[in-house]
C-alpha cells in the first residue's frame, strides 16, 4: 500500500473492500433521499418557493404598486401608506433604497398573492420573526401565494445589501384575526 504522496504502480483499478463499499452505498442511498425530499415537498408540503414568475419593467411594477395602494389604502404609518387588501387579492410590495412600500394589513388564514420586486437594486425580503426569506430582483416579479397563519405584528427586514442605508430598510405587516378590530383605519 502507498500513501497519497507516492505513485501507485501497476493497475490500481481494484475492487473496493467491504467497509468502503458499504459506506459508498449508504452515502449514495442518503443522497437519493436528499433529492427525493424536494419533489415530495412540492406534492405534500405547504412551503415552496415556486410562485408566479415574470419579467417586469421596474417602472411598470411601481405603477401597479401605487394603483394597489390607491385602491386599498386605509392610512399611513411613519409616512408609509398602509393598505388592507381583501382576502385573495394580488398584493404588491415594492422594495427600493431604502424602504418597503406599502405597510400591509392582512387577515389570518386568508391567501394572498404577494408580488415582490425592486425599483433599483437587489433587496432581500425577510419576514421577522417568522423567518421567511426571498430574493427581490429588479426586473423580475415574484408572485408568492402566501397565507399568514398567525395574527400579530411582523416586520420586513431587508437582508440583501442595497447600499449605505441598507440597515434602515424595514417594512411592516400586521395580521389580524378575522373578528378582530383593525389596527389601521376603519377597515372600509
Amino acid at each position: 500500500m502507498n500513501t497519497g504522496l507516492q505513485s501507485p504502480t501497476g493497475v490500481w483499478w481494484k475492487p473496493a473492500h467491504k467497509a468502503e463499499r458499504l459506506w459508498v452505498q449508504i452515502a449514495f442511498a442518503w443522497c437519493l433521499v436528499l433529492f427525493a425530499m424536494m419533489p415530495l415537498w412540492h406534492m405534500k408540503g405547504a412551503q415552496n418557493p415556486s410562485g408566479i414568475r415574470a419579467k417586469v419593467n421596474p417602472n411598470d411594477f411601481a405603477r401597479r404598486t401605487y394603483e394597489f395602494i390607491n385602491t386599498y389604502k386605509v392610512g399611513e404609518d411613519h409616512g408609509v401608506p398602509v393598505v388592507a387588501p381583501p382576502p385573495g387579492a394580488d398584493v404588491y410590495l415594492l422594495g427600493r433604497m431604502w424602504a418597503w412600500e406599502p405597510v400591509l394589513q392582512l387577515e389570518r388564514g386568508a391567501q394572498y398573492t404577494l408580488h415582490l420586486s425592486s425599483l433599483d437594486v437587489n433587496h432581500g425580503f425577510s419576514l421577522a420573526p417568522v423567518n421567511l426569506n426571498f430574493q427581490v430582483v429588479p426586473g423580475y416579479d415574484y408572485g408568492l401565494r402566501i397565507t399568514p397563519s398567525e395574527a400579530g405584528e411582523f416586520t420586513i427586514v431587508c437582508n440583501e445589501f442595497c447600499g449605505i442605508n441598507h440597515h434602515a430598510m424595514v417594512g411592516r405587516v400586521v395580521v389580524l384575526d378575522r373578528a378582530a378590530a383593525p389596527v389601521y383605519g376603519g377597515g372600509e
Binding site: 421577522a128 420573526p129 423567518n131 426569506n133 416586520t155 441598507h166 440597515h167 430598510m169 424595514v170
Partner: peptide, 24 residues
C-alpha cells in the same frame, strides 16, 4: 440565523429604521 438574524447587516438594533424589529 435560525432566528432570522440577517447577514451583511450593519445594525440589528435597527436604530435608524422606521419600525422596531424584535428578534428572540
Amino acid at each position: 440565523g435560525t432566528f432570522g438574524v440577517p447577514r451583511r447587516h450593519y445594525d440589528i438594533s435597527f436604530a435608524a429604521a422606521p419600525f422596531a424589529v424584535e428578534f428572540n
